[in-house]
Design a protein around this nucleic acid. Structure first.
Length: 303
DNA sequence: ATCCAGGCTCCTG
DNA sequence: CAGGAGCATGGA
């Protein structure tokens, strides 16, 4: 296996360790891995497995990353595509200053921006990944959702062993399209979730879904899923207003008496335009800081 | 046992 | 078209 190292310059401000904190709080994460302050991510680049290892350097205002690519047959185009994928996933080109400047008029958000200065949320690497990820998260608690996601990735994703550790890529549409129901219901997925995932993967495979706009009308994909997926793809103004966690965060931060309704979140969110997506990430981040990691029991002794 | 969880579909009025 | 019952699968 070849190894190829280069330096990246994210747009400042960028706090690499802070941005990884969301992941460190999720023990079930096997797609975005954090080990000893380094970030690992395996991509399937045109059929080739490419492992990215990222180490933070520099400061929040002059950030630098050292990126190492590991894989077989690393030719120029493959390297280019892997770097591009990594830049998008780590959200390196996001201009936080613009966001902070736009939201400084809202005292609540201004406070969060100051407290979490440099936080860039980790994104999904494809529409396919974002939607499947979202479907799994529908209507179940986060701890359980992370377990299901981990199983999906480890059962069906491509893997690479490096320095004695295993890394996984997100399963391809092909892998999910040909799934038997039982392969996942055996692992605590509901039949419905598997059906939704499989039907969606087949639509992707058939080339019917290449943009967020095409999601409408697919079975199992409602408004929340579209907004959530768009947000995790970096759509900076996407607002999953029905999201329970967001509603909780809004309730707390804006001092409401009762759980904010979807309508209330939409109304409040008007003041975050055109950054409602990033505002949501910041509110979630704060919720994590306030409440601790997703509630999930420790043992993961399954098959 | 009961309520809740980062919803969705389908059926009413 | 808005509102709500019913749904599937587990956690706490």
């Amino acid at each position: 296996m070849k190894r190829y190292t280069l330096t990246l310059s994210p747009r400042p401000p960028f706090d690499f360790q802070l941005s990884l904190r969301f992941l460190s709080a999720v023990p079930e994460e096997s797609l975005n891995r954090v080990e000893e302050g380094r970030y690992f991510r395996l991509f399937d680049v045109g059929g080739r497995a490419v492992l990215c290892e990222v180490q933070g350097m520099g400061t929040v205002d002059e950030p630098q990353l050292e990126l190492s690519l590991v894989g077989d047959g690393l030719d120029g185009p493959t390297v280019e595509r892997a770097i591009d994928a990594l830049r998008r996933v780590l959200n390196l080109d996001l201009d936080l200053e613009e966001f902070y400047a736009a939201l400084c008029r809202d005292p609540v958000m201004a406070e969060l921006c100051q407290r979490y200065r440099g936080y860039k949320p980790i994104l999904a690497s494809s529409l396919h990944e974002a939607v499947v990820w979202a479907i799994i998260g529908q209507q179940i608690n986060q701890g359980f959702a992370y377990r299901l996601r981990r199983r999906l990735v480890e059962l069906l994703g491509r893997r690479m062993t490096y320095r004695g550790r295993e890394y996984f890529a997100f399963p391809t549409p092909e892998a999910l399209a040909s799934l038997e129901l039982e392969e996942l219901t055996r692992h605590q997925f509901s039949r419905r979730k598997v059906e939704y995932i499989r039907e969606f993967a087949r639509a992707v495979q058939a080339g019917e879904v290449d943009a967020v706009e095409n999601l409408q009308g697919l079975r199992g994909i409602g408004r929340w899923t579209v907004e959530f997926a768009a947000m995790r793809l970096g759509a900076r103004d996407a607002l999953p207003a029905a999201d329970v966690a967001l509603r909780r965060a809004v309730t707390r931060q804006y001092g409401l008496e009762r759980r904010a309704t979807e309508a209330e979140v939409r109304e409040l969110g008007e003041r975050w335009r055109p950054w409602r997506g990033l505002a949501t990430f910041y509110l979630w981040f704060d919720l994590l800081a306030a409440e601790g990691p997703a509630t999930t029991h420790s043992s993961c002794a399954d098959s």
